[in-house]
Lab assay of single mutants.
Amino acid sequence: KRPMNAFMVWARIHRPALAKANPAANNAEISVQLGLEWNKLSEEQKKPYYDEAQKIKEKHREEFPGW
């Protein structure tokens, strides 16, 4: 399985609240909304998620060399 990128790290945190706020929305609609919200963030706001994604990527590389 591929390691999460910065957007996926961010979305994992924000998806539950968005789903709760929009109970009639299906998963595809929630994903679209998450994408729109992510694109509104500044690079500075995204930086912690890029940092976390890098850590996940490095850990994945250690656990699965050659993947």
Score class of each variant (00 low, 15 high):
Lys1Tyr: 04
Lys1Gly: 09
Lys1Val: 09
Lys1His: 12
Pro3Leu: 11
Met4Tyr: 08
Asn5Tyr: 05
Asn5Ser: 14
Ala6Tyr: 00
Phe7Leu: 01
Met8Thr: 07
Met8Leu: 08
Met8Asn: 06
Val9Lys: 06
Val9Trp: 01
Val9Pro: 02
Val9Ile: 12
Trp10Thr: 01
Trp10Glu: 04
Ala11Gln: 06
Ala11Arg: 03
Arg12Lys: 15
Arg12Gly: 12
Ile13Trp: 11
His14Cys: 03
His14Gly: 02
His14Tyr: 05
His14Thr: 09
Arg15Glu: 13
Pro16Glu: 12
Ala17Arg: 15
Leu18Trp: 09
Leu18Gly: 01
Leu18His: 02
Ala19Glu: 15
Ala19Thr: 10
Lys20Pro: 01
Lys20Phe: 07
Lys20Arg: 13
Lys20Trp: 03
Ala21Pro: 02
Ala21Lys: 12
Asn22Trp: 06
Asn22Arg: 05
Pro23Thr: 05
Pro23Trp: 01
Ala25Met: 15
Asn26Gly: 09
Asn27Leu: 04
Asn27Phe: 07
Ala28Asp: 12
Ala28Cys: 06
Glu29Tyr: 03
Glu29Cys: 01
Ser31Tyr: 05
Val32Ser: 14
Val32Leu: 11
Gln33Ala: 10
Gln33Met: 08
Leu34Met: 06
Leu34Gly: 00
Leu34Arg: 01
Leu34Pro: 00
Gly35Asn: 15
Leu36Tyr: 11
Leu36Pro: 01
Leu36Cys: 10
Leu36His: 09
Glu37Pro: 00
Trp38Tyr: 04
Asn39His: 07
Lys40Leu: 07
Leu41Lys: 01
Ser42Lys: 05
Glu44Arg: 08
Glu44Asn: 04
Glu44Ser: 09
Glu44Met: 09
Gln45Leu: 04
Gln45Ala: 11
Lys46Leu: 00
Lys46Asp: 00
Lys47Glu: 10
Lys47Asn: 02
Lys47Gln: 13
Lys47Val: 08
Tyr49Thr: 01
Tyr49Leu: 01
Tyr49Glu: 00
Tyr49Ala: 00
Tyr50His: 10
Tyr50Arg: 12
Tyr50Glu: 12
Tyr50Lys: 07
Asp51Trp: 03
Asp51Pro: 04
Glu52Gln: 08
Glu52Asp: 04
Ala53Ile: 03
Ala53Glu: 08
Lys55Ile: 09
Lys57Ala: 15
Lys57Thr: 09
Lys57Gly: 14
Glu58Cys: 05
Glu58Ser: 09
Lys59Met: 10
His60Ser: 12
His60Gln: 15
His60Lys: 09
Arg61Cys: 10
Arg61Gln: 15
Glu63Leu: 08
Glu63Asp: 08
Pro65Cys: 13
Pro65Leu: 08
